[in-house]
Amino acid sequence: MIVGIGNDVADIERFRAALARTPCLASRLFTARERTGPDGRPRDAASLSARFAVKEAVLKVLGAPAGLAWDGIETVTLPSGRPVLRVSGAPAERAAALGIRDWHVSISHDGNLAAALVVAEGGGGRRRCTRVCGRRGGP
């Protein structure tokens, strides 16, 4: 069952300028694994801005949990190139409270935009539909 969906876009040039203006920004926002590509080289601004969009999309699903640390939302790239989401700390606690058990993430960048879509999946069973249907169990 889908618990939540979040999406976000980021302006790559604006993000590149922010990184240049604030040298420690990348280490504040991203884990070491996020800052480094599969080849061991530092990620460029387009890749980092897409990962930042993932973090923002996750916040749209979770709200802004108290005690949030940016490194608690991490996009890891599998050897296949597929991005996967890992949450820890306050984001993981909030996800557990919402019943989220699995995350699906898609990221892309083209031109000057980076985009992310995050889908949070949770427990099975039928959802109660009292607000819309006026009765339990849904249509």
Rank of each mutant, 00 (worst) to 15 (best):
M1W: 06
G4T: 02
I5E: 13
I5Y: 13
G6K: 04
G6H: 06
N7Q: 10
D8P: 04
D8N: 08
D8S: 14
V9E: 03
V9P: 07
D11V: 02
E13H: 09
R14C: 11
R14W: 05
F15E: 03
R16F: 13
A17M: 10
A18H: 09
A18P: 05
T22S: 14
L25P: 03
L25A: 01
L25N: 01
L25E: 00
A26D: 05
A26W: 04
R28L: 12
L29V: 15
F30K: 03
F30W: 13
T31N: 01
R35N: 11
T36V: 02
P38S: 14
P38H: 08
D39C: 12
G40M: 12
G40F: 07
R41C: 06
D44G: 14
A46E: 15
S47D: 11
L48F: 02
A50L: 03
F52D: 00
V54N: 12
K55Q: 13
K55Y: 10
K55D: 00
E56D: 08
A57K: 00
V58Y: 02
V61M: 02
L62H: 01
L62S: 05
G63Q: 11
G63H: 06
P65W: 14
P65H: 13
A66V: 14
A66T: 12
G67A: 07
G67V: 08
G67H: 14
L68P: 04
L68R: 13
W70P: 03
D71W: 03
G72L: 00
G72P: 08
G72K: 05
G72I: 03
I73S: 00
E74Q: 02
T75E: 05
L78P: 14
P79Y: 03
S80T: 09
S80W: 10
V84A: 09
L85T: 02
R86Y: 06
V87C: 12
V87Q: 09
S88L: 08
A90T: 01
A90H: 05
A90Q: 00
E93C: 09
A96N: 05
A96L: 10
A96S: 04
A96T: 13
A97Y: 01
L98K: 02
L98W: 04
G99V: 10
G99I: 09
R101W: 04
R101A: 13
W103V: 01
H104Y: 15
H104I: 04
S106P: 04
I107F: 11
I107G: 01
S108W: 08
H109K: 12
H109P: 06
D110Q: 13
N112W: 05
N112K: 03
A114T: 02
A115V: 15
A115F: 15
A115P: 02
A116G: 08
A116T: 01
V118M: 02
V119E: 06
A120P: 00
A120C: 12
G122E: 07
G123N: 09
G123R: 09
G125F: 00
G125A: 14
R126P: 06
R126S: 14
R127Y: 13
R127W: 15
R128K: 12
R128T: 11
R128Y: 09
C129R: 15
R131F: 06
V132K: 12
G134M: 15
G134T: 01
R135F: 10
R135M: 09
G138P: 12
G138S: 11
P139Q: 04
P139A: 14
